[in-house]
Simulated assay, not measured.
Amino acid sequence: MADNRTASATGERVSIPVIGAGAVAATLRLPAEPAVAAVTIHPATAVGAWLYTSFAEYLVGHGFAVLTYDYRGTGASGTPRANRGLKMRDWMYQDVPAVAAWMAERLPQIPHFAVGHSVGGQALALNNGTKGLQGFVSIASHAGVTRAIEDRKERLRVGLILRVVGPAFSVAMGMVPGRRLGIGEDIPGAVMLEWSKWSRLPFYFFDDPSLGAAESAAKVNTDVLAIGFTDDLWATPRQIDALFSRLPSASLERRTYSPEDGGVPAIGHLGFFRRAGKALWPPVLEWLEARTVSVLNGSSLGIPRRYRVR
């Protein structure tokens, strides 16, 4: 497929209402020519929408419309204290479907995809925001069981944050100062408390009877590309498999990349979306493009000339 110039692309800031209450702040980027498909990027915990800018612009440069956003209580979508009662499940079961539905309504006549990072991919794996999707890509999404972290030093560090420091701030302040703790953006306290609870269960949120996670995951029936990295100490291959093995009806493809594959010294949990990791973007683009062409081949719209194989 051809590469469009991002210089002439447009960006629109939008506010998307959420059924639970409030709204999320988002940015819709459109290519210079009519978009051939749409991608919604669902963020990780304590990660601002800014991290996804370069990757979003890359996709826009190849003809995709792309939506990025912050979960409620993070970034531009309200303060953590004002949203202190929000749980992690509210992000997954309310925010994710809300932005997906908005995107589908805004661009109704083109194929839709999603990219989920960490908890964003977990939400998709639980069948949230998947209605009408032609497929989704998960980046470093896993069953986040603390004791399953193989690196001992990282296991102790994460355990301290999720079991001691984070819950203490949540109870005392109603929020977690992620920036001060070095774990990313500030987040609502109830998010941390639920995350902490799940991290101590043998099978993460699949062991929370109030969530019905196994039943939700079993309903996913689209194409799924689950990507992990050899130097990600959180989302290890074992924990990625622990999540995506629960999707029996999905057409699943697993890939694991090393820093050497990307020509970078490290990737970790966040590095894929940084500009330095752009060598790993073309395989994801190709995966999205292949499914876009497949959908358009079977529609009355046909394939735009700039995307036809010459």
Rank of each mutant, 00 (worst) to 15 (best):
D3F: 14
N4C: 14
R5K: 15
A7S: 15
S15R: 15
S15D: 14
V18F: 06
G22P: 13
A25Y: 06
A26N: 09
R29N: 09
R29K: 08
P34E: 09
A37K: 02
V39R: 06
I41S: 00
Y71H: 12
S77V: 07
S77P: 03
L86P: 02
M92N: 04
D95C: 03
M103I: 04
R106N: 00
P108T: 11
P111W: 06
S118Y: 03
L124T: 11
A125F: 11
N127S: 11
N128L: 02
G129L: 07
L133C: 07
L133I: 11
G135D: 05
F136R: 00
S138N: 07
S138C: 11
G144C: 12
R147D: 13
I149E: 13
I149K: 09
I161C: 01
F169C: 15
G174R: 00
G178Y: 09
R180M: 13
G184K: 07
E185W: 04
P188H: 03
D208N: 02
P209R: 00
S210R: 13
A213F: 06
A213D: 08
S216F: 03
S216A: 14
V224A: 10
L225V: 08
I227S: 10
D232S: 09
W234R: 14
I240E: 13
A242E: 04
S251F: 01
R255C: 01
D261M: 02
A266C: 02
F273L: 03
F273W: 04
A279K: 14
L280W: 01
L288N: 00
E289M: 12
A290T: 13
T292R: 05
S294T: 14
P304K: 01
R305D: 15
